[in-house]
Design a protein around this nucleic acid. Structure first.
Lengths: 235, 235, 235, 235
DNA sequence: GATGAATGAGTTTTCATTCAT
DNA sequence: GATGAATGAAAACTCATTCAT
């Protein structure tokens, strides 16, 4: 393999690429911080540059236009899904355990990118057609991973037959919910507890051998205390 | 009974009020149409006026500023929830049937305001603090109706004890999903089928006497044919 | 004289004319009230209509356009000058007494139209060329009345020869000052005292026989107390 | 003394400050030119930008809003008063001579900022409350300088006792008159002649020892010719 | 590569004026 | 004659983007 060309891992090319990555990261982080409170449209490029500690010109050196910032952020999240979810599912044999691991990983990404995950929702309408397609594609891909496990579990008789496509999107949706409705989910202090609770809700009616998967179906008792049913966040 | 005073149901006052309502409706409808494809920020007021078939000046005669359009749209949806959901639950005695009726009504509103419902999501960040509070309040209120039935059902021993707050928001979320992920839900041709399917997913694990509520748990077999598990919308 | 035509003092024509005058008066008064605190440009026609208790349409029935309001107000003041000043000078024989009477009358008009007099200054730039010419004409006319008396007094040897044109405008200016610098003239509680004081200032150096005109030169002692020289309005 | 810090008289900071000053000057000059014929409100910012030879955006880079232009212009004039008047009075001993010098300097500023001086009058109503207070403050300050000399002259017995506050404002007013009534003052070709004439008018009746101050009281004979009393500017 | 001053198209909003009722 | 809803031209102001330094 001749190293003369492209993704050079060394030499001036590499320096350039590394700087670009670093700068983009700077920009994305600043953008997420600002958009969290202002939204995409109310964040001006000059405010972004200020927040990132660089000049407007530099922003444009690494971005074609403002819309690309959005794409960058959203891709950042979606790629985290595409990376963390398969990794979490990797070693496990049991389809249901794989599903659980994948879902929890998904929730974990949502949690660690909470602001960005919300943005990926709210602002995806501001992407051009191409960008939107790309986002949808990535989203479908990750959801597909979950659906595949549901299908496998059905095939092995672990889960009752059901519309796995629907349940797959349900899980995706409920993972996003951690970011979207976080305000109302004060009963859960960490994502994992939340994720397990949701898994229990969804799987309870599907699992055939409830004993075998008791661990998945009866999640952390969340400090025996809380009177179930009190709507959290109600005033 | 003489109606001499105030909210006059006749006379010039009434004409004025009627016109205002009609104009606002015109504006909201045009706005929903445009925002569906452009989002709130990319819809200029002059484009809105053109779409509504009126002049810019007239838009501002019935709205204080652009933001109010958003508030108007969102309130429209949220008030539909607050109206249709209780109405649907009205006459029914059984808590679970009430829950089902309420949820299906909720889904129905989402369906009939599909575009607006998505907007209520995406753009609520563009509301001022006051507007946002109002929106959250209305949302909490409607979800509360569902939670109340879950609580009642638990109390009567119809449902196993569970975190009814969580499940309440789950139902809300899954109703919204009809609008948000509609693209991927091609397996369902009408909301009711969709709603029943989701009810089944959520309640399956909670119902104690599965026979009694079989009708709720085994929804329309959706044309016996479809091979379960094929991810709908996948390309 | 056939009454078929014009300024009919009776019949429908007269009614019409009377109404027009009355409406215009309504409008001018409301306009002065508003402009006093907002200026001409910041007063909207609809605010004017509201203040006058009539509709926008009615305003335009009696005015060609907004600028005419200004012209109307300014003419109102200037015509008061042109009317009151000659009247005050009417019966008097002595040129200097005539001058004094005319000047005091001028000051009186400024006082009774204080707001409008200031406007006549501030906003005359907003008049069109024609309006401006008309205003200047009226102003020159009234000042001319004063200058004529100064000339007469010089001719009769009552005043030392001097640039009567200059002093005429000085008197005009000092009369306007009552409105323009009213904030700083707290030492004077009524216009007449103010006017006499200014007459004394201007004439003191010009009068030949100071004894004869002592009454004009030594004005009201303004409550013997005030320590002369304390800058009024200073903070 | 090392000038390491702040209002840097060199380095990029200095360049920036210098550019800002230059730009603001550009803008103020263009604004004065336009307002002279259009007034403040009828001058649009884009017209201003065009006149100044820059873009609208650049105007706003150096000014927060349109009103600031007005404030800038007026402050420019008022600060010239506050600077030139004391300077002119500096070295002189005799109070009356000091007064004369101050007044003539005041007239000089009015003359050299003729357009702006008129604006300071006409448009100060368009300033916000804060701006207005600032303007009034500066005005009072300068007038106070003249009043102080009048008081001193009275104390020394050079002038008869009189209301020095009133006469102080008279002088201010008559100085402004050079700009306000310039159209009618065609008899005077330069400010100094005008100023001396006005000084003579005001002081003639106040000076005790008329011989000693003859030079102040009998101003330039303005080309022996002019028939006194012909109202200049009359048509 | 980095900077930030300059640009001007585009946005929201106001308001003088008209005209059908 | 009186009304006030409708109009749309024009204003103030913002901000993504460029480019000379």
């Amino acid at each position: 393999m001749t190293e003369a060309t492209s993704p050079a891992s060394t030499g001036p090319e590499a320096v350039k690429a590394a700087r670009a990555t670093w700068r983009r990261q700077q920009i994305v982080e600043a953008a997420v911080r600002l958009m969290e409170e202002q939204g995409f449209h109310d964040m001006s490029v000059s405010a972004l540059a200020r927040e990132a500690g660089i000049s407007v010109g530099t922003v444009y050196q690494y971005l074609d236009n403002k819309d690309n910032i959005l794409l960058l952020i959203i891709e950042d999240v979606l790629e985290s899904y595409a990376q963390d979810v398969p990794k979490a599912m990797g070693e496990i044999d049991d389809p249901l355990e794989r599903l659980a691991a994948g879902f929890l990983a998904y929730c974990g990404v949502v949690d660690s990118h909470r602001a960005a995950a919300v943005l990926a929702y709210r602002e995806s309408g501001s992407l051009g057609h191409a960008g939107l397609q790309r986002v949808i594609g990535l989203e479908v891909e990750t959801t597909g991973l979950l659906v595949a496990e549901l299908d496998a579990a059905c095939a092995e008789g672990i889960l009752r037959p059901h519309d796995t496509g629907l349940v797959g999107w349900d899980l995706t949706m409920l993972a996003h919910m951690w970011a979207l409705k976080h305000r109302h989910l004060t009963a859960y202090t960490d994502v994992t507890a939340y994720g397990r609770a949701q898994l229990a809700v969804v799987l309870a009616g599907l699992v055939v051998d409830r004993k075998r998967y008791a661990r998945l179906l009866e999640p952390a008792p969340r400090g025996a205390g809380r009177p179930p049913g009190k709507l959290p966040g109600r005033r």
